[in-house]
């Protein structure tokens, strides 16, 4: 495959492999300290994940939103934009998707689906433009502004939902029409019976390919990365840095809204407060582990999916929350291993 040939990518793959191995080693040590048999725990986990269609389906289902959000963030990170605001952005977009799907119930699916995508994209994208604009105009670091915006957006969505749109005495919107629900894999493949895995997973894979193409095969992608590497040089090459930063923020944030498709149209049929459960932050780890390569994002999202579902699978032996710890260890290992590998590859 073409993307494996580059030297830089080789270094990346080395450091990713080392950090995944390192994470497993630390996990094993951790399990030993806790008095659990690592062979049993890991064996059960992988057995459950890969041993049944249901397990595999659930793993892929958990990976789906991480692929989507990871791709959005990869675009931002390539431009050296530290978008910590995905959690807020994706909630705003998902909320709007649920409303559009509910209130435009008269439309045929073929029209409604793009409308949902578009409205979610624009809403999340616009919330991404706010930090972009104040970064460009006022030089305010996007780190702080996106963190602050997370809270603002979540409070705003909370307010709109509770006071106007929620089903009485719940924290969710009305259920959308059954006919708008995206088909589950189990409808086509018997083996996935009972799993929530739906066609959004395919959509996520296509999105990753599209994002890969955008970043590595178009002028926009090259300019995006040029700005990310060296803003001064890109300025002298006639690239309009501000335009690139605005676009990266808009597209990257906009894409995060698509996680709502998986949850609303593929799973529950409604938007619910807290559905994202820190997805916007976990996706940062997913993108970092993949070194912001969208194809890599697929794999690192799968790893996180395995941890997520695998946690449930081993819950009887060790609490499933151990997977949060392992996720934390993954991101810290990739950060530190990266620096060490960098020294060898120059």
């Amino acid at each position: 495959m073409e993307f494996l040939l580059n030297k830089k990518l080789k270094a990346n793959i080395v450091s990713i492999s080392i950090s995944v191995v390192l994470t497993f080693l630390i996990t094993i040590i951790l399990l030993l300290i806790l008095g659990k048999n690592p062979v049993v725990v890991l064996g059960t986990m992988f057995g459950e994940v890969f041993g049944s269609g249901y397990g595999l389906g659930q793993t892929l289902f958990k990976a789906t939103p991480l692929i989507i959000c990871g791709c959005g963030l990869a675009i931002c990170f390539h431009a050296s934009i530290f978008n910590i605001g995905a959690e807020g952005q994706l909630n705003a977009g998902s909320f709007v998707i649920s409303l559009v799907a509910f209130y435009f119930s008269g439309l045929p699916f073929i029209l409604l689906f793009p409308l949902c995508l578009l409205s979610g994209f624009i809403v999340s994208g616009v919330f991404g433009l706010i930090p972009a604009i104040i970064k460009i105009k006022k030089g305010v670091s996007e780190v702080i502004s996106t963190i602050m915006l997370n809270f603002i957006i979540l409070a705003l969505v909370n307010y709109l939902l509770i006071d106007f749109f929620a089903v009485k005495s719940t924290v969710r919107t009305e259920k959308i029409s059954e006919s708008f629900m995206i088909p589950k894999f189990s409808e086509y493949f018997q083996m996935f019976q009972g799993s929530s895995l739906n066609l959004t997973f395919v959509f996520a894979l296509l999105l990753a390919l599209f994002t890969y193409y955008l970043i590595y095969k178009t002028s926009f992608g090259y300019k995006l990365r040029a700005v990310g590497f060296n803003e001064t040089a890109s300025k002298y090459m006639g690239i309009k840095n501000n335009k690139i930063i605005l676009l990266a923020f808009f597209i990257g944030s906009g894409i995060t809204s698509f996680v709502g498709i998986n949850f609303i149209m593929g799973y529950k049929g409604y938007y619910e407060l807290g559905f994202s459960n820190n997805l916007g932050f976990t996706a940062i780890a997913v993108a970092l582990l993949a070194k912001n390569n969208p194809i890599g994002v697929i794999f690192s999202a799968l790893l996180f999916g395995i941890l997520d579902y695998g946690g449930l699978a081993v819950n009887n032996i060790v609490p499933k929350e151990i997977m949060f710890v392992i996720q934390g260890i993954v991101i810290l290992s990739i950060l530190s291993v990266d620096k060490l590998v960098e020294k060898y590859y120059g």
Binding site: K8, Y216, K217, T218, S219, F220, Y222, K223, R225, A226, F229, N230, A233, S234, M237, G238, I239
Partner: peptide, 21 residues
């Protein structure tokens, strides 16, 4: 230049918008 880019990648930075590089 973008020192992390290859020669070819540096050459196309001044191109007009282009798809499928």
């Amino acid at each position: 230049m973008i020192k992390e880019f290859t020669i070819g990648e540096n050459l196309i930075l001044k191109d007009k918008n282009k798809l499928n590089i």
